[in-house]
Write a protein that binds this DNA or RNA. Sequence first.
DNA 1: ATGAAAGTTCAATTTTTATTGAACAAGGGG
DNA 2: CCCCTTGTTCAATAAAAATTGAACTTTCAT
Lengths: 172, 172
Amino acid sequence: MPPVNPPMDTVQDHLDPLERQVVDVFVDGVRVLGLPRSIGEIYGLLFVSTTPLSLDDLVRRLEISKGSASQGLRTLKSLGAVREADGNGGAERRTYYEPAVELKRLVGGFIREQIRPHLDSGKERIGRIAATAGEIDDPVRREFLSDRIERLEQWMNSGGKVLPILQRILGQ
Amino acid sequence: MPPVNPPMDTVQDHLDPLERQVVDVFVDGVRVLGLPRSIGEIYGLLFVSTTPLSLDDLVRRLEISKGSASQGLRTLKSLGAVREADGNGGAERRTYYEPAVELKRLVGGFIREQIRPHLDSGKERIGRIAATAGEIDDPVRREFLSDRIERLEQWMNSGGKVLPILQRILGQ
DNA sequence: ATGAAAGTTCAATTTTTATTGAACAAGGGG
DNA sequence: CCCCTTGTTCAATAAAAATTGAACTTTCAT
């Protein structure tokens, strides 16, 4: 009987304590932003890694499924938070990822993907509400509502104004 | 046989279409902030209501449990997003609530309760990470990490600086 | 062309989070 | 005091969200 190699899934290849700590900071961070844990894990591991990592690296080291890794990378790409690394001059088939570490870019991506759409749809909905409220008969009620709606609109405007300022301040 | 009154839970007392629309805007809004739907419903209903509402009003009109209403109000109070209304000169036992509608106050409360604690614990954790990283033998790895950690610290500082500015801008 | 490696998709499942509801406290008024 | 109204707490349950994994597509080396 020939000697057997240890089964693949026994290979100890997971996170060292430092990596674990860094990953946990990002897990917490993305939680605040309303993003799933796996996204924090992926970005965090890329962030502590000296070299770019492939999807398979992430699966193996974080012990997450290929599905999670694929979807997590997709979201991170859409946020502009990771980019494909050139690696060795495109000589490889597999694609490797590295984190975008400029705060400006991260904030910009988050605003574009997660904040703006809500602001925009909110404005539309408030427009419709204003129309409905305009047809109310009772004048007291109608004026009360027009007041509140106006305030909502002000909020939205403030939001719209503050975002570019945010981006400017965080761009160093 | 005497005539029976309609059972209490059949009373049609729920939201009219306008109230529903407004509540939905807030449900969406708090979702972005990572707060539960019931909190958006409660704040939203207070926001469209001409008069302050009691816990029981919220339970009845939103068809949520007393537990939800109680916990939701607690969170909203801690955020400074609702206040107890004086009603009729404290002559009532039951307490009534009205929304705080100044954006400044809402933003301030959210930052204080939901953002600051994370920023603070993040800073601590990064401090510990920096200590761990300082003891690494491989100089290449150590310098890479000190670079990344420094960047993380910059992010935290930017966050700390931007919050007061945010609050100032949104204070009108 | 063929097949193996790489990556995506999405229904099923697990995990997490929010909500319920019943038991419990608080606090008047009679 | 006692009891009724108001409000809180928290274990059990329901609802929502994230993750898995297997089937599928794409891509490239031979």
